[in-house]
């Protein structure tokens, strides 16, 4: 096995989870690239030519190039120093969809003292570590190496995308942050593993017929139940209600914000119960997932019963998320 791959695997074992990773000189590794080694050979070649021809100017050039090499090493390391990485809020996805994780890159405060006028970081490469470890040369289709500049005082948002294979909390694989800048003679890199709040819902099953048990404790259906189909009157606007339903004309007449109410035709209320379904755990979760999506789409009010937890009847985005999250995290430790 390649030494660099071995090294990388060894380093990856030492990566610790963090909410936010700050790159310090302790955590940055640096090694010459293949080109860097050729450059060193070139400098030695020029130096031996200088000795051989006894030529002072060639001596000077060899030394200047050596100096450039040394300083470029320092600059390559500096180019990663004090960068800070974290993951912003992640939109949950269903299993087997690609998840997009917004990586937030910024320069840490301490670096600001360095050079207020010019302390941008150039060509920072970000990639999943395992890709680099497995095929260092071959870039997989899933996530290519991404490059970005980071200006001082600005946050750079880089969407990482990754396929998902499993419901539950999403564990972001370790990332390798690297740079070749300025001359490509050295590669500075570090591995980070970031925590995130991403949840992957179970994969919804195909549509299927299921007659859910009606909500036993539901209070009256019909006229009182609110829906979207038939106009039934006005009520005062509550924050959170759809803006479409505001009676703007009344607002223009300075009668305050009124919201139109509708009586729904098929306004149902029911429980989605684990026990009513059959099959193994994943199958039931998939089916429940499908039912929740459909219920939310139809504007029904629904509750969820799974072993160990019950979520009361309600509706709306947040409710849906709670239900799906409960499914996602079911028996995941």
């Amino acid at each position: 096995m390649d030494i660099s791959v071995k090294l990388q695997n060894w380093l990856l074992k030492r990566v610790s989870h963090k909410d936010s990773a700050l790159l310090t000189s302790k955590s940055i590794y640096i090694l010459p690239t293949k080109e860097g080694i050729i450059y060193a050979v070139l400098v030695i070649l020029i130096l031996s030519a200088a000795i051989n021809f006894n030529n002072s100017l060639i001596f000077f050039c060899a030394f200047l190039m050596a100096g450039i090499g040394i300083i470029s090493m320092h600059m390559t390391q500096q180019n990663l120093l004090n960068l800070q990485f974290s993951i912003a809020h992640v939109t949950p996805v269903f299993c087997c969809q690609n998840i997009s994780l917004p990586l937030v890159i910024s320069q840490s405060a301490a670096d600001s003292i360095q050079r207020k006028n010019n302390s941008a970081k150039y060509s920072i490469a970000i990639q999943f570590s395992h890709q680099q470890a497995l095929n260092p040369s071959q870039s997989s289709d899933i996530f290519l190496q991404k490059l970005t500049d980071v200006r001082y005082g600005e946050q750079t948002l880089l969407p990482l995308s990754s396929p998902t294979t499993q419901r539950g909390p999403f564990e972001l694989p370790p990332l390798t942050i690297s740079t070749l800048y300025p001359l490509g003679l050295f590669r500075a890199w570090t591995n980070i593993q970031l925590n995130n709040d991403a949840v992957i819902y179970p994969r919804p099953s195909k549509k299927f017929n299921h007659v859910p048990q009606s909500g036993s404790n539901s209070e009256g259906q019909g006229a009182k139940g609110r829906g979207f189909d038939d106009f039934s009157g006005f009520k005062s606007y509550q924050p959170g209600e759809s803006l479409k339903h505001i009676h703007w004309k009344a607002y223009a007449r300075e009668q305050g914000l009124l919201s139109k109410t509708f009586s729904g035709g098929n306004n149902h209320e029911y429980w989605l119960d684990w026990n009513e379904l059959s099959g193994d755990i994943e199958r039931r979760l998939s089916q429940l997932c499908r039912l929740i999506i459909d219920a939310e789409d139809q504007g029904d009010r629904y509750g969820l019963i799974i072993p160990g937890s019950t979520i009361n009847i309600s509706q709306g985005q947040l409710h849906q998320h709670q239900c799906l999250k409960a499914l996602a995290l079911y028996q995941v430790y």
Partner: peptide
Amino acid sequence: QTSLPLYDSFYLIGRLFVKALPIAI
């Protein structure tokens, strides 16, 4: 792919040489 203009790094290369020159001397 990166966003900052190329001439942005001229200053950096200037610094590189200012530091490399004393080493060379």
